[in-house]
Amino acid sequence: MTSRRTPAAVLFAAGLLALTACGTTSTTGDGAAPSPSAYPSVDWAARARDAAARHDARFPEIVAQCAGRATTLPPVPGATSTDPAADKYAENNGFKRELPDTPMAQCRGEAHATRIREALTGEGKTVPRTEAELRTALEGLGYTVDPGAISATSADGGRLWFEMHVYDGGPCVGGQLHAPVRIETHGPYLEGGCWQPRGGH
C-alpha cells in the first residue's frame, strides 16, 4: 500500500529539515571551518572619529565657536524623590528622557540652532511656509534632511515643524516655523531618534 502525503505533511517535513540545519557551521571548500578573520569586527570608535572629522570639515565655524569645551559627560545626579506618585510619573514618562550631552555637544547644538534660526528667520529673510521650502533651505545650509524630518499640517492656518539629526557627530536640532518661531537643540531621546516618542506605559 502506497503512502500518500498531503501538502501540509510535505511542508511540515521541509520545516523540520530546515530546523535541523540551524546552528550548523558552514565550511570552506576543503571542509575546514572559516577563520575568524573572515568576519572582521566593526571598529565603532574609528567610525565615530571619522564621522566627527566629516562634521568638522563641513562646519568649521561651529568647531571654532566650541573649541575648548569639555568632551566628557557630566555626572548624573542620583534620585532624591521620596514621593511614590512622583516616582511613578517619572517612570511612565521615561520614554521622553533625552540622553545627556557633553558640554562640547551642547555647545555645537546651540551653535547649529542659532545658525539655522538666523538663516531662516533673520532680518530680511522669508520664513519657509511649506515642507518643500524648508527642505530646500536646510539642504542649502549643508544639512541632510531625511524623509520624515519635516512635519506639516494645514490646521489653524498652517503649521510646520522639523526635527533632524546633524549627521557625523552632530546633535538633534528642531523646532517650529509657525508663530511663535522656535528653533533649538536637544539630545536624542532614550528610545532613539530626534522626534519625541508618542507612547509610554
Rank of each mutant, 00 (worst) to 15 (best):
L160A: 07
G175T: 04
G124Y: 02
P147K: 08
E98S: 09
A79Q: 14
T153M: 03
L99S: 11
W161G: 05
E163Q: 14
T121P: 00
G170Y: 03
A149G: 08
V145H: 01
E98P: 00
E131G: 10
R108H: 02
G124P: 02
A137R: 09
S151R: 15
D87A: 14
R135T: 13
L190I: 14
K96L: 11
E184V: 13
T153F: 02
P84S: 09
V181R: 13
A86P: 00
L120C: 07
W161A: 06
E191V: 11
G78F: 00
Y189N: 04
G192A: 05
G169R: 01
E91T: 09
R117C: 00
P147Y: 03
A86Q: 14
N93M: 11
R182A: 13
P75T: 07
E98Y: 00
Y189L: 01
R182M: 12
A90R: 15
C172Y: 01
N93C: 06
T72A: 14
M104C: 00
S154A: 13
G124R: 01
N92P: 00
L177E: 03
R129G: 13
T114D: 15
G169H: 01
P100C: 08
S81E: 15
T153A: 08
G122L: 09
Y167F: 07
F162W: 05
A179R: 11
G187H: 02
T80A: 14
Y189R: 05
C107K: 05
T71D: 15
G157F: 02
T144W: 00
L190D: 14
R115C: 02
V173Q: 05
E123I: 06
G187E: 07
M104H: 09
F95Q: 12
G124T: 05
P171K: 03
E131S: 11
A113S: 13
A132E: 15
N93A: 10
P100H: 04
T185I: 01
Y143E: 14
Y167S: 11
C107W: 07
T185R: 10
A105V: 06
I183P: 06
E133Y: 03
L141F: 03
P103G: 05
E118G: 01
F162T: 10
A105K: 10
Y189V: 03
Y89K: 11
D156M: 12
V76Q: 14
L177C: 04
A155S: 13
M164P: 00
